[in-house]
Design a protein around this nucleic acid. Structure first.
Length: 444
DNA sequence: TGGGGTTAT
DNA sequence: ATAACCC
């Protein structure tokens, strides 16, 4: 190796994992896209997806007519009388397609982190390295960026970091092309050296486009935020506390004394968000893998009796049992969550959880046994532990969650389970074996 | 504000 | 068990 010192430093920096290539992939108005695929007659019309009294998302036709995300149905209809609404309270199809997207991305590189149903991060560092090593005779001159470059900054083909991000932009384009060809979905992508910047830059050109951020422009990107609340990682609470300190811009957060910040927020959060304000984010892309919990919830106008609660709980549990059955893993914990009508308290929830008795866990995959009744009994005990049913109450939400999921197959072969584990597959949970409520005459 | 999810304390 | 964060 006889390269100059500057080049050598960059190569070392690039190779020592201090420099990564991350892509953030963000589907365009995901629920609305899924609905238009389910029912192509909706295409071309202004479409909103409704949950209770809210339009939770809408397509671009609707946005052009003034409909916004999380807009009241009343306001949306007023703004846009032609608005077509579909109910989106059942997330089943959204969840299924969401995981198909993640699986498609995992085919490019296994390191994929989900963020909600419609966003994914992928660490492209290794893939980019491989592609650069395959380049014939180090000929960089044929390389071109795919999509937009933030700030229209020009690419320097002699800069290793530029080259790596440029290859990242090409992979991002292939990902979006695969999403469209295989799933019919469009989305945006942002390519940068960390998750924070990749996420921020993915939103720069908006529907169905992509943007790469070169390092020289990262300060411009973060300073384009008008308020620190727009910084991913700084939520409602932290933003309020910072505002009370007179900190509202990225610049304020960069320049505030770290001692003052640590005193207000504690050392870990203070240090993390102050690094974020400089565009620094060393958090890894953590592979999400299968979900760690399954939950179903329903918000209610009013639930004020134990019978009403039991009926809702049965409904939620029936759906959950089907989901958990299809997953194959077994939940070892069950949780019930409520929200009380409280006058002002900002949507505070309460929960109670307990272990699921092992004899019920075993029966979970099989349709051979009524698991509903004992499970509902457990949930109602949790319910009465939280709610004094002898006193008046008013709940506005019920939620049931299965968590602490364990795969049966991952037997540590020292345990007795290894020798006793049942063959576990005489029944399937699909189709007619699905769990139903109340009516027992379900077989065709 | 819905109907989900995650991690940290 | 709660509180914060994300969508």
């Amino acid at each position: 190796m006889s390269v100059g010192p500057a080049v050598h430093d960059r190569v070392v920096a690039a190779g020592s994992s201090s420099s990564r290539v991350i892509v953030h992939v963000d589907l365009d108005c995901f629920y609305a896209q899924v609905e238009m695929i389910s029912n192509p007659e909706l295409k071309g019309k202004p479409l909103g997806v409704q949950q209770k009294f809210l339009v939770v998302t809408c397509n671009y036709e609707a946005r052009e007519l003034g409909v916004k995300k999380l807009m009241n149905v009343r306001d949306a209809k007023e703004k846009c009388p032609q608005l077509v609404l579909v109910n989106g309270e059942d997330l089943t199809r959204y969840r299924e397609i969401s995981y198909k997207v993640t699986e498609l991305l995992e085919e490019f590189s296994p390191v994929v982190e989900r963020l909600g149903f419609d966003e994914n991060f992928v660490d492209l560092t290794e893939m980019v390295e491989k592609r650069l090593q395959q380049l014939p005779s180090d000929d960089l001159s044929a390389l071109t960026v795919s999509g937009h470059v933030y700030n229209d900054q020009s690419v320097n083909l002699h800069d290793v970091l530029h080259i790596r991000l440029l290859v990242g932009s090409q992979i991002a384009a292939e990902m979006r092309e695969a999403m469209y060809n295989q799933l019919g979905l469009t989305g945006c992508a942002g390519v940068a050296s960390n998750k924070l910047l990749a996420k921020l830059v993915s939103g720069i050109f908006k529907p169905n486009q992509q943007t790469v951020l070169l390092p020289e422009s990262s300060q411009d990107l973060i300073h384009s935020l008008k308020h620190i609340k727009e910084m991913p990682g700084i939520g409602y609470k932290t933003a309020k506390r910072l505002e009370a300190l007179g900190i509202s811009s990225v610049h304020d957060l960069q320049n505030v004394s770290s001692k003052i910040l640590e005193k207000e927020l504690g050392i870990p959060i203070a240090q993390r968000i102050q690094k974020l304000s400089f565009g620094e984010d060393n958090s890894p892309v953590t592979p999400s893998g299968p979900p760690q919990s399954f939950s179903e919830e329903d918000s209610l106008k009013k639930c004020s009796s134990e019978v009403e609660a039991k009926s809702k709980i049965q409904e939620l549990l029936a759906s959950l049992l089907n989901r958990v059955c299809q997953d194959g893993r077994k939940p070892h914990t069950i949780r019930l969550t409520i929200r009380r009508h409280s006058s002002e308290k900002h949507c505070s929830r309460e929960s109670r959880q307990c272990s699921i008795p092992s004899h019920l866990i075993q029966k979970l995959g099989t349709g051979s046994y009524d698991v509903m009744t004992p499970m509902v009994d457990i949930l109602m005990k949790l319910f009465r532990n939280m709610v004094n049913v002898k006193m008046p109450f008013h709940l506005t939400l019920l939620s049931v969650c299965f968590c602490n999921l364990k795969s049966l197959n991952t037997t540590k072969k020292g345990t007795i389970d290894y020798y006793l584990t049942p063959s576990s597959s005489t029944t399937s949970c699909s189709g007619k074996h699905s769990f139903k409520m109340k009516d027992t005459h379900m077989e065709d």
